[in-house]
Amino acid sequence: MNTPLAHAVEEAGVTALAPVLSVSGLAKSYDGRVILQSLTFALSERQSTALIGANGSGKSTLLKCLVRLTEPTAGRIDMLGQDVRALGPNELRRFRAQVGIVWQRHNLVPRISALSNVVHGVQARMSGPRSWFQALAPATVRAEAMSCLERVGLADRAMTRVDSLSGGQQQRVAIARMLMQRPAFILADEPDASLDPQTGEEVMALLLGLVRQDGLSLLMISHRLEHTLRFSDRILGLTQGRITLDQPTALANVTDLRRFFEHPETP
């Protein structure tokens, strides 16, 4: 079970696995405005953790800080065995390659095929022209990209331009691109936000499948209470940049959780 950092340290003698992510005293401010305040938590491997909170509570900023797409103001992040804040530019690139991100807006490259977009995922471990487009990619990379597309049920749309696919299909292509990275950890920023309920559910099930079948670790921002309850093992609740809830999903009280979804905060 995932535990807060203090408990993880306490239980170190009995817990065989070190946390896959541990965050200590993480803070972030923009122009004097505090977004994250001294966050401390730790996540174990092969778990799905939901991060919930009202708009402006700092969820997306936290996710970006974890891979330094946004630089934290203070604190320490240990992820996949590395001190993330101490990484130099090249080490940071190699570290990011191990972390797959599913964005709220899929962030695919328009005007090119689904297969080319998936091939882009190989840039996590390969550079040069052969990783730029499917037409230039080696046969092994093309085959792996096709199997990633097959995994998300879109092998038959490989050569379709991504901007002509539906929102749900585009999100699946983004997941296939993320799989192509061969990540060890997945960060998902409201992956179901722009999708209809049915498609959103399918995407969430796909992500949970990666945790259950492939043994990946998942930290996802969730904005739907029912998805939080169905697709996570543990819930972290953020309120005004602080963790105010940290418990296993099985023990969660629905009434307690509702306040994270129903009361938007003013910044």
């Binding site: 690139r93 490259v109 328009p110 090119i112 487009f133």
Partner: peptide, 24 residues
């Protein structure tokens, strides 16, 4: 957005420019 995604994948700057900026 696509440029951020490529950066997050760990793509090199050149890879990001050719793969994400030029097609757009």
């Amino acid at each position: 957005g696509p440029q951020d995604a490529m950066r997050a994948i760990g793509a090199s700057k050149l890879g990001m420019i050719v793969s994400a900026v030029f097609p757009a």
